[in-house]
Amino acid sequence: MMTLRTGLLASSVLVLVGCAGSGGTVPVVDSSRAISNESLNAGAGMTPGQEQQSAPAESGVVVMIPDDAGGSRAIQSYPLDVQPSLQQRPSQDPQRSTATPSGGDSGSLQADEQLDGPVLALLTVARDQENRGDLTNASASLERAMRIAPREPQVLYRLAQVRLAQGDAAQAEQLAQRGLSYAGGRSTLQAGLWNLIAQARESQGNSAGAAEARQKARVTL
């Protein structure tokens, strides 16, 4: 666990420095912070209201990394195309209705490519399970999210990450490839997926393939 965290931290710093040579960033649309004990009991489907207060004023991708205290903090944020659905979750009113009609004509995206309430909630639950080392259930939660939004590359990205952590690098690579096939026009996410593919290939002993994937990550960014 610690080495994984350190690795994530190190690689994320590399991204900040501008070198995308190593994977490990987590391009998940999520603005949550350390999940409190109360919210652990909230169960799937409950998005703790507290999360929204830590969200930056402008909605966007916030890449989270776990810190030593067991919480997590934002290291990178960039505007993203899922904004419409997040806007319907204003950060100040915790009692608001979280219903998000997904069939709306918000932008050119497919309805199921928007990260709205349920998918976001499940990604939060999954990350929580992953942080506790419960990869099996994290995987189950992500598959549940995938059934709701099968074309959402961010879900596939997270699932690929979990597979890699579970030691199934071949499947991690395939899932990331599948994520890429749905990530058209989302260059940051594409770079993240290519980096993940690079990691997966590396751990399968395919260093040439890994280098190629890293090259692609650099080009897409």
Binding site: A44, M46, T47, S97, A99, P101, G103, L120, A121, L122
Partner: peptide
């Protein structure tokens, strides 16, 4: 053919 709105206690966005 779809659920247009869902609500529950507090921040609930989904249920099974």
């Amino acid at each position: 053919p779809q659920i247009s709105a869902f609500s529950g206690a507090g921040d609930l966005v989904m249920a099974r």
